[in-house]
Nucleic acid binder design. Sequence first.
DNA 1: ATATAGGGTAAGATAATATTTACCTGGATA
DNA 2: TATCCAGGTAAATATTATCTTACCCTATAT
Lengths: 108, 108
Amino acid sequence: MEEIIGRTVEVLKALANPVRLSILALCLKHERSSRELREILGISKPLLIAHLRRLVALGLLEYRVDFDERRMIVKKYYRTRIKEICVDRGLLEEIAREIAGVGEEPSP
Amino acid sequence: MEEIIGRTVEVLKALANPVRLSILALCLKHERSSRELREILGISKPLLIAHLRRLVALGLLEYRVDFDERRMIVKKYYRTRIKEICVDRGLLEEIAREIAGVGEEPSP
DNA sequence: ATATAGGGTAAGATAATATTTACCTGGATA
DNA sequence: TATCCAGGTAAATATTATCTTACCCTATAT
């Protein structure tokens, strides 16, 4: 049992939000700094951080840490990791099998 | 302006739920009655109705009305309409263009 | 001292979803 | 009469999501 339904829902929920979808779109072609994203999206810092964290946790976004030695400042640059999330016939068939209980490990 | 972000989020939100995803999976290969779905999913009638309505409204699910003349009863049979929802590079690029404001109609 | 930039956390308000129980319609059946 | 079936609705509650303000720390510049 792989819990396909749970994992799929988790990813879809992460994508089903205008801010997070916009972040992925903005970081697609080139990396973006936190400040840049906040200015474009017009949201507060804690909110942006929460959204970024969620995307990173699911592997949909990655970041590079840049250490500015002169200013003793750590900056992060975000970039989208495309994972081609697709709700198609194949996925639905897998879910149907999970519901039917096919592939359950027999009790030991 | 087509409001891609809004429409995409709406569809993804509809998919980002274990019950609705299960309904689509169950009605994929053959149509299912309301009762059948409720027994498999183990949820209340009003809840199932709400989920069904939402999927139908977005065109992800369709139903056939069967009128049993002898019993004077109307029954509905649901079937999944596959629409191949895909969050890929192309979609993100479109969203990025929407954010950048490309293709806005000039003020008249 | 104060402001700015960067990366945070904590608490709390508000809004949206998910879900339940109780009830209504109409006809068939025990 | 009472119960079951089908398809609902209404209202209340519970759980999540979303978002803001107010803070903390470090270092640089004014």
